[in-house]
Design a protein around this nucleic acid. Structure first.
Lengths: 163, 163
DNA sequence: ACGTAGAGATTGAGAGTTCAAGTATTGGAG
DNA sequence: CTCCAATACTTGAACTCTCAATCTCTACGT
C-alpha cells in the first residue's frame, strides 16, 4: 500500500484544465443555444432525439434513462416537463404494469424538425469545424474509452472476483 | 446562401455521441465523488482550487468567474454557499468600492488538502489511466481548440471585420 | 400458492443554476 | 464639475437536479 497520492504532472494538469474548460463552455453554449431556439436545455433536447430515433418513437423510461446516461429520477422530472409542453406523452406498458413508455408527440417531432438545423450548426461551429479529421477520430476514440470506463457495470462485467 | 443544413456524417455522429456520453458520465461521477468526500459539487471544488493557487489565496469575483468559466451570478450564489461552510470569506476591495475579494480560509484550505488526493485519484482512474500518452496529448490539444473557440471574445480577437 | 426481494417508476424537499432586474460605483465626455 | 454609460456584484424567482423515500408490480424460491 502506498499512501502518497500520484499527483497529476504539469502536462496532465494542462490537459485536465483544458478539458474542464472546454466541457464547461461547450455545455453552457449549447444549453443557451437550445434554450433560446427550442425552449429547452440540451439534455431535454437529447431525450427528444433518442425518442425520435426509436421504433414507434417510444421508449421505456428505464431504457431512455440508460441511453441518455441520466438517472431515472432525473428523467421522470424531465418527462413531466416535456409532457407539459406537449412534446412527449406517457403510455402504460401493456406487458408490465409497472412500466411506462415515453412517446414523442407530433408536436415534439415538429420542434425537433424545426430546431435541429440550428443545433447541428452550433455543434459544427463549436467543434467539428475546428478539428482536423484525425482529431475528430481521436476525440471519438478517447471519449469512447472514458465512457466505457464509467458505465454502471454492464452484464457480466461486474463482480469479476466471483468468477 | 445555402439553406440546406450540413448534417453530421455517420462518423461525426458517433464522435459526438461518445463525447456527450463521456462528458455526462464523467461530470456526474466527479460530482458524486466530491459531494460524498468533500461535501460540495465539482464546480465548487474548482473554485477553491483556483483560490488556493492565487497570490494571498484571493481573487476578485469577476476574475474568479472568468477563470472558472462561469457567470458572475452563479459565482455569487456559489460563494455565498461556501461562505456559509466557512471555506471562503469575502473582503471589500480597497481600490474599488464595487469590488469584492473571495478569499480561501484556512478551513477551506484544509478541506482541499484532505480531499485532493481522493479527487486526483478519481480523475486518474476515470481518464488518465485509460489513455495512452499520445491520446492524453491529443485530448489536450483538441479541448484547447474547442475552449478557445468559445471564449467570450478576447481583447483584440473580436470584431475582426473592423481590422 | 404465498411471501418477499428486487425492478420500474414517481415524488418531495433541498441544493444548484439561470435569467432578468436591481444597487452601487467608476471613468470619461463634454 | 456634471452627467451617464459601463462595470462590479447581488438578488429573487423560476427552473432543474439530486437524494432518499415511496409505491406498485414482477419474479421466483419454497
Amino acid at each position: 500500500m502506498n499512501d502518497e497520492p500520484r499527483w497529476l504532472t504539469a502536462e496532465e494538469q494542462l490537459v485536465w484544465r483544458s478539458y474542464i474548460e472546454a466541457a464547461t463552455l461547450l455545455e453552457d453554449h449549447l444549453d443557451r443555444q437550445l434554450q433560446r431556439d427550442a425552449g429547452m436545455p440540451h439534455v431535454y433536447y437529447g431525450l427528444l432525439v433518442k425518442l425520435a430515433e426509436s421504433p414507434r418513437r417510444r421508449l421505456r423510461m428505464t431504457e431512455l434513462a440508460k441511453y441518455a446516461k441520466i438517472t431515472r429520477s432525473r428523467l421522470s422530472h424531465a418527462v413531466a416537463r416535456l409532457e407539459k409542453n406537449g412534446w412527449v406523452r406517457r403510455e402504460d406498458c401493456p406487458s408490465d404494469k409497472r412500466g411506462q413508455f415515453a412517446i414523442l408527440t407530433d408536436e415534439g417531432y415538429e420542434v425537433l424538425r424545426r430546431t435541429a438545423p440550428g443545433h447541428v450548426n452550433a455543434v459544427r461551429q463549436a467543434v467539428f469545424d475546428r478539428l482536423t479529421p484525425e482529431q475528430q477520430k481521436s476525440l471519438g476514440e478517447i471519449m469512447r474509452i472514458v465512457a466505457e470506463g464509467l458505465q454502471p457495470s454492464e452484464a457480466g462485467a461486474d463482480l469479476p472476483w466471483l468468477r
